[in-house]
Design a protein around this nucleic acid. Structure first.
Lengths: 109, 109
DNA sequence: TCCATATATCATGAATTATTGATATATTGG
DNA sequence: CCAATATATCAATAATTCATGATATATGGA
């Protein structure tokens, strides 16, 4: 995770369809979703969805895997963690008394 | 933190100077940095820096406060937490067994 | 009030990104 | 091999974003 990776990841998330996709995939969890399912659920044209999925897949935020005629997409939770870690790393290094409670509050209820 | 806020925040972070600025402010912690200090440290022209700081300040990721002739900028840790929370909320709701360890690993060492 | 310092705004051109229709490629079943 | 399904690529246009020179505004001190 270098700065360019982080910039690409944030750019991927700075677009409504792709943000929707990642949230869908996070919700879907380890079973993932096929490109077609995602496009249908969000009501996005096929080629637009394809371009956006490729954009996401070029980041470390999602992975994919061909399954027969479909391609299945998955949220990459460790990639998401790395991105957040990249943003916060200097806080953790220099000011753990600020950073720790911040991340503490992110824990699931 | 609605979807539009999240999109603006991610867009702010999808640009090198602004990402650099936020990381600087995270490192600076509660003492913050003036606009001039930030621009000087990053070697960015004054008006370019001003535009980028305004972009960041329109999100919830940073705050600012005029101090005499300068304007001081601060990372807004609760805003950062809200952004991460927005991204992960469906995970926490549906799959805490995936989400919890992810956030656990983000804690400061 | 006048000057110096700190930041913001404006206008412009360059670059990037998004969407879409049309079409191509890949996979599977018959 | 052929047809059907699933996804990708291409080309073009529209829209957005970026950085910058020039200039304006705001604050504090003499």
């Amino acid at each position: 995770m270098d700065k360019l990776d982080a910039l690409s990841s944030f750019a991927a998330l700075a677009q409504e369809t792709r943000l929707d996709v990642l949230k869908l995939l996070i919700k879907a969890g380890e079973q993932g979703m096929s490109a077609g399912e995602i496009g249908e659920q969000l009501g996005i044209k096929q080629n637009t969805m394809s371009a956006n999925l490729n954009n996401l897949a070029r980041t470390n935020l999602v992975t994919n895997k061909r399954e027969g005629r479909s391609i299945r997409y998955y949220a990459n939770f460790s990639g998401i963690r790395e991105l957040i870690g990249f943003l916060m790393e200097d806080c953790c290094g220099g000011n753990p008394e600020i950073c720790s409670p911040l991340l503490e509050q992110l824990k699931c209820p």
